[in-house]
């Protein structure tokens, strides 16, 4: 590995770009510098890390862990915020602070599951449609269009209501609504990459379709897909909470933030803390992920920066 090896670009030599490991490190360092200069993104990252830690240790540090399991303490019902119950107590006398803390894991894992399933369906379908084209692609893309004609919340509401209200069904509904976005993104990327010289030369060299897709094309679509995932996490948390708020997602006493806001609505305005704090948790989590996503997009995809 020589330090002064000048990287040649594809266009200059008609060969795949040569990259040394030094360039990778240099590139990474530049990206980290760029990310660190975006103070909002750094703040987002700090809050996200904090939330992830809470999601892991929440049940162990909550002052009243029984609150998340639907424990009833009628003597302590609807108490305002105090030193023993920072966010007050709910209609069952449960500590809202503990429920919000423990609910972090639930809200984050719902969003994670939705995105994992959506990527798992959307990316392969998009890759197939983009690479092979023809009738199959036509079918896949028209299907995508149909799903994209209905605003996500309405379609998710319809599917979740049909499946029956539960966390699992809300996740399924959201994943069904979410995959077309990834499908369309991947299809566009693959279509563009297919015509690049390095893919054509791999095909000339006799690489199989599977090898071309997995070794040469998909790794190059990773950046836009990662950017979309990071931008979508917040929106997924928000939509899942919305479904639970309506009543077709998580059901009480599950410590889901949206469901808690919904329960507290019946106790307004006197018992204001009941809805306020769980909702604040949703806002902070979504805000953090959105700031992080915004910063990551700046770093990873400077051209898409609008």
């Amino acid at each position: 590995m020589t330090l002064n090896a000048k990287p040649t670009t594809e266009s200059e030599q008609g060969l795949p770009a040569f990259k040394s490991r030094t360039d990778d490190w240099e590139n990474l360092r530049r990206q980290i510098r760029r990310f660190r200069s975006n103070r909002l993104a750094v703040l987002g990252l700090v809050i996200v890390v904090f939330l992830l830690i809470i999601a892991i240790i929440g049940p162990y540090i909550a002052p009243h862990p029984e609150a998340a399991r639907g424990a009833v303490d009628m003597g302590n019902r609807l108490q305002p915020p105090s030193s023993s119950n920072w966010f007050g107590t709910d209609d069952m006398g449960a500590d809202i602070f503990s429920r919000v803390l423990i609910g972090t894991r639930l809200s984050l894992s719902i969003a994670a599951m939705v995105l994992i399933i959506a990527v798992g369906i959307g990316v392969p379908l998009g890759a197939v449609a983009g690479y092979f084209g023809g009738k199959l692609a036509e079918v896949i893309m028209r299907l995508t269009d149909i799903f994209l004609t209905v605003p996500p919340l309405i379609l998710a509401l319809a599917i979740a209501a049909a499946l029956g209200p539960s966390i699992r069904n809300a996740m399924i509904a959201l994943a069904i609504v979410w995959w077309p976005g990834f499908c369309r993104l991947t299809q566009g990327q693959v279509l563009a990459l297919k015509q690049r010289t390095f893919v054509e030369s791999a095909a000339t060299a006799g690489a199989t379709n599977g090898r071309i897709i997995f070794r040469h094309i998909l790794p190059n679509t990773l950046t836009p897909i990662m950017v979309k995932i990071s931008m979508d996490v917040g929106f997924a948390i928000l939509t899942a909470a919305g479904l639970s708020f309506i009543g077709v997602g998580a059901q009480p006493p599950a410590p889901e933030w949206g469901a808690m806001v919904s329960l507290g609505r019946g106790y307004l305005p006197e018992w204001w803390w009941f809805s306020t704090f769980p909702g604040l948790a949703i806002f902070i989590a979504v805000f953090a992920f959105n700031m992080l996503g915004d910063g990551l997009r700046d770093v990873l995809d400077p051209r898409g920066n609008k």
Binding site: A241, F245, T276, L280, F283, V286, F287, N290, D294
Partner: peptide, 16 residues
């Protein structure tokens, strides 16, 4: 960024 992050149902309750 704050505005796209607001859960509208919660923001509505806060304004109420």
């Amino acid at each position: 960024i704050s505005f796209v992050s607001l859960p509208t149902f919660w923001f509505a309750i806060i304004l109420q």
